[in-house]
């Protein structure tokens, strides 16, 4: 029972849409049953892709005190599964079906110090936390890393609000984030909250463990939507059921199996709970584990995978040159 995980669905009217960075749209919603959004909260909403409704999760970037206005921000990724294309098309006056704010990433009040780490669009989960910590007079550092300045949503606002507490790292300006330095300099009693690409979060997790810092003080949220490799189309086979399905780049393996009529067990659909685990019987290619359920040892063994987020790729190197050999094929057993 991590605070609020009961989905209360409601209508919301889009009251404002504005570009806040390259390919990032800020969308302000007016829900019919407002509820205050705690720092770290997100909401689920339904997007329509090819006429079908699909659920997506977006962090609440900010909200009014009474929750009557809630802002999210959506990155339209080149590898979008279709949800972000839908979200970029919404206009003021449109209505969306959304949940009241949900909470899987609560900010604890009372830690001796904090590091907030935002990578790219992950900043959406961090903006509200940073504001609350500032209001509390907490000892915090906000670290914001991205590939280029024009991709950084809310940078001017964050600079204005957090001043010296904000450290900005931008790859193409030569100020890349060094995870080793960041984790190496963290106060041993600090809590670190992060949201960003899985490569960044994996690197921080590894450095955190290497430094033998208290693991529960490392807080992160992943919606399971980034991997080590770009998503590509692959084939999944379930011999026992005689099923062979194509998993397009914009669709998850779990969705593809459901589409093929396989009755699947699942819960979180974001790589945390492990319920959608399938056994890997054979593999042509490699597995791009995108979950946080398996340990590194288990991921390396590649005997199982969380089909809600993890994918097959043609080459363990991820090099495009190898992709010419055709789609990866993963043969699995389901429960």
């Amino acid at each position: 029972m991590a605070a609020t995980n009961i989905e209360v669905w409601q209508q919301a009217t889009v009251v404002e849409t504005v570009a806040v960075a390259t390919n990032i749209q800020r969308i302000v919603l007016a829900p019919t049953s407002p509820k205050r959004a705690e720092p770290g909260s997100h909401l689920d909403l339904f997007v329509t892709i090819d006429g079908e409704r699909h659920k997506r999760s977006y962090s609440v970037v900010d909200s009014t005190a009474d929750g009557s206005r809630v802002a999210i921000s959506v990155l339209q990724a080149p590898t979008s599964r279709g949800g972000s294309i839908f979200m970029h098309a919404v206009q003021p006056g449109d209505t969306l079906e959304i949940t009241q704010p949900l909470q899987n990433f609560p900010l604890r009040v009372g830690a001796p110090s904090y590091v907030l780490l935002a990578g790219g669009i992950g900043v959406t989960a961090i903006v509200n936390m940073a504001r609350v910590l500032k209001n509390l007079g907490a000892n915090y550092t906000l670290v914001y890393a991205a590939r280029s300045r024009e991709r950084m949503a809310y940078l001017p606002e964050l600079l204005a609000l957090h001043g010296d507490r904000l450290r900005v790292h931008i790859d193409d300006e030569g100020t890349q984030l060094s995870v080793a330095e960041l984790v190496g300099s963290v106060d041993p009693h600090a809590e670190l909250y992060m949201c960003g690409p899985i490569r960044l979060m994996d690197a921080v997790r590894r450095a955190w463990r290497e430094r033998e810092l208290n693991y529960p003080n490392l807080r992160f949220e992943t919606f399971g939507n980034s991997g080590w490799y770009d998503p590509e189309e692959f084939i999944v086979r379930v011999p026992r059921l005689g099923v062979e399905a194509r998993v397009p780049a914009g669709r998850s393996m779990l969705e593809a199996l459901e589409d093929a009529g396989v009755e699947m067990m699942f819960d979180c659909r974001k790589g945390e709970c492990g319920l959608c685990e399938v056994k890997v019987l054979a593999l042509e290619g490699a597995i791009d584990h995108r979950d946080v359920f398996y340990s590194e040892r288990q991921q390396h063994a590649a005997a199982k995978m969380c089909c809600c987020v993890s994918r097959a790729v043609t080459s363990p190197t991820g090099l495009q040159a190898d992709a010419a050999r055709g789609p990866a094929i993963v043969t699995i057993a389901v429960s």
Binding site: M1, A2, A3, N104, F105, P106, Y215, P216, R219, F220, E221, T222, C268, E272, C273, G274, V292, F293, Y294, S295, R297, Q298
Partner: peptide, 11 residues
């Protein structure tokens, strides 16, 4: 399990 579900917290 070998990992900890990051959502697992109690108030």
């Amino acid at each position: 399990q070998e990992t900890i579900n990051p959502s697992a917290t109690v108030p």
